[in-house]
């Protein structure tokens, strides 16, 4: 195995493209190092991208924020601007692992790990976040929703890597929330999860919403029926029940050591309902 501390984006792309064996990008390393230790992957090349210019920066852009691929969860959580604009995205990222893991883990890494249970992804999907990808053909942007392909597999092609994630601007009276279910209070992988982003009008009626689910299908799901259930409402009990039912209806989970199909399907709706209410309150709804 070779370890290379890359100096610039072009070098990363070149290294990834030229490697005939297995290459891995290292940002926070909290997935790669575990896989390395467990013998799940034996990379021939590790490219450390933490020293690229701007890769650890959070910058304002068009009323939103561009977050460098190597920004850790702890750094993101300390950024008052992002926390105010996208609290649900931040709380999703902050749920990844322990305080120690937060010191290293990144949103981009969490996304690239390709896990359907990745805690940061439902929030990013609900936020309609866009990743910027550098590759042999230059730079391209892609919706977060289109990155995961199947468990452990993402849509980036050889030579490509994520350089930043963009969280768009928000109107007044808009917010988001993320909830996951785990058996303990910390340190577990999500058994089911929901991200909800919504916008309200002056009287508190929901005018736009995006609802996403994690850990209940091979990839994170965007559930339009669930969003439609609350658009035009003030999140009354009846509309929340429709939202919950819509969420449960699209679940396609597995039985495993972390939860059953039945359980995941049931609580996906419960979590979406609760997350919607938190987002509603954060957006100023009563």
């Amino acid at each position: 195995m070779r370890y290379v501390k890359a100096e610039n984006v072009a070098e990363v792309v070149q290294l990834l493209q030229d490697e005939v064996g297995v290459a891995r990008v290292l940002a926070g390393g909290t997935d790669v190092l575990v896989q390395l230790k467990m013998g799940m992957v034996e990379p021939d090349l590790i490219v450390d991208i933490k020293h690229l210019e701007g890769i650890k920066d959070i910058v304002s852009e068009d009323g939103g924020y561009r977050i460098g691929a190597a920004v850790s969860g702890a750094e993101l959580g300390e950024h008052a601007g992002v926390v105010a604009l996208w609290p649900g995205v931040v709380e999703g990222v902050e749920l990844i692992g322990s305080t120690q893991v937060q010191g290293r883990a990144t949103m981009a890494g969490n996304l690239c790990n390709g896990s359907p249970a990745a805690d940061s992804v439902p929030g990013l999907v609900a936020a309609d976040a866009v990743v910027r990808i550098a590759g042999p053909d230059g730079v391209r942007d892609c919706a977060v929703l289109d990155i995961p392909v199947s468990p452990g597999k993402i849509s980036l092609t050889k030579g490509e890597f994520i350089t930043s994630i963009f969280l768009p601007k928000r109107p007044e009276r808009a917010s988001d929330a993320y909830l996951r279910f785990i058996p303990r209070t910390e340190m577990d992988i999500a058994v089911a999860a929901a991200g909800v982003s919504l916008e309200l009008d002056a009287d508190g009626t929901c005018t736009a919403a995006r609802v996403s689910l994690g850990a209940v299908a091979p990839t994170v799901l965007l559930v339009e029926e669930a969003a439609n259930a609350i658009i035009g409402t003030k999140l009354d009990e009846a509309s929340l029940e429709i939202l919950a039912a819509a969420c449960s209806a699209v679940c396609n989970p597995i039985d495993d050591k972390r939860g059953t199909i039945e359980f995941r399907t049931e609580i996906a709706g419960v979590l979406a309902k609760r997350a919607a209410l938190i987002a509603y309150k954060r957006a100023g709804g009563q």
């Binding site: 370890y3 501390k5 390393g29 190092l33 467990m38 590790i46 450390d48 933490k50 010191g103 290293r104």
Partner: peptide, 29 residues
């Protein structure tokens, strides 16, 4: 554990709390 699940290897790197089992030695440069 060697997988970031127990915290027994906690150290500070550049002022951040991390699990030293999840950091490469080479990154300490």
């Amino acid at each position: 554990c060697g997988s970031g699940d127990c915290g027994a290897c906690s150290v500070m790197v550049d002022g951040r709390l991390v699990c030293s089992c999840l950091v490469l030695g080479a990154e300490a440069e």
